[in-house]
Amino acid sequence: MLLKKSTDNKIYDYNERSVLFSTSTENKLYCIMENPGSNLEKSQDALVVPREEKSVFIYLFFYFVGLTILFPYSMLITINDFWNYKFRDTSIEYNSTNDELTELQKSFPGFLSISGNVPLTVLSIVTALFGNFFNIKTRLLVSAVLMGLAFGGTTVISGLNTDSWQNTAFILIMVINSCYSAINAVFQTSFLGNLGRFPPRYIGCTNDGMGLGATLPAIINIIIIATKPDRELVGLLCMIFGVLVIFVQLILYIFASRTEFYIHYAGINESVRNTIDYKSYVMVFKAIWIYILGML
């Protein structure tokens, strides 16, 4: 078995990412190089999980990122009553006996879905193909900042009195939502693609966070409505929560990306590839084509 010495006390597997155990008897790091036929005998004082993997901060960070991926957009589509109020017929009293919806009210959910899903799909494919040309940390930081700014733009519009320029507000929201979804596609494709390099528990907690990110907006909306604020404030308060979640996630990433554990697994210091490995994409497609077919 081929070993390489270093200056720590942990032992990594052959791909130098998954920590097998650490020993306290020697202040050395042994990195197991590729040797398919070898067996590793653990010492009596071996630890199954390294100290970094036990960090509550890192674990919660992954959970929060999963939440952030879905939380803002879920909040946007949850406050449907607010958008109906925003694009109401201003010539009559809101919630009057006239139940006829305006054209903007009828069109808003459909256009919001189209303006969000089309850029999301396109940019996810583009990022998967060409994202490797840029460092993972750069992609995540830049996209997180732009996500916050884009969602902040929608938040500003939601807080303004748009009764006299509803059509313009409608178009602006759709344009900004398209920008946000495109940026979000870059972020989530980069993060989730890189997530496969981490131990299984971090993959699991990220998925759990995404589940909460899809349901938490409805809970927050109910709580806000229960306080009986003005109709104009309901949407604004909910949207502000979305902006806060994005920027809290940005701050957490800045700290997490400086930890030895995240740098090692994420490959932040690895050189950027300037070529596209089409063989890898073909191999992945062959492995998942049945699942793609099932979604069609």
Rank of each mutant, 00 (worst) to 15 (best):
T90D: 09
S91D: 11
I92F: 07
N98V: 04
E100G: 00
T102C: 02
E103K: 13
Q105L: 10
K106C: 09
S107C: 08
S107Q: 11
F108C: 15
S113E: 10
G116P: 04
G116L: 04
N117S: 12
V118F: 01
P119I: 01
V122Q: 01
V126S: 11
A128V: 01
L129H: 05
L129R: 09
L129C: 11
G131H: 02
N132E: 14
F134R: 15
N135D: 00
I136D: 10
T138C: 05
T138F: 04
T138L: 00
R139D: 13
L141W: 12
L141D: 13
V142I: 13
V145Q: 03
V145S: 00
V145W: 09
V145L: 10
L146H: 13
L146D: 12
L149I: 10
A150S: 14
A150L: 08
A150R: 06
A150W: 08
F151K: 02
G153C: 12
T154Q: 10
T155Q: 03
T155K: 04
T155N: 02
V156M: 08
V156L: 13
S158W: 13
L160C: 13
T162A: 02
S164G: 11
S164K: 12
N167E: 15
T168S: 14
A169C: 01
F170N: 12
F170S: 14
I171V: 12
I171Y: 07
I171C: 07
L172A: 04
I173W: 06
I173Q: 12
V175A: 04
C179Q: 05
C179I: 15
Y180T: 03
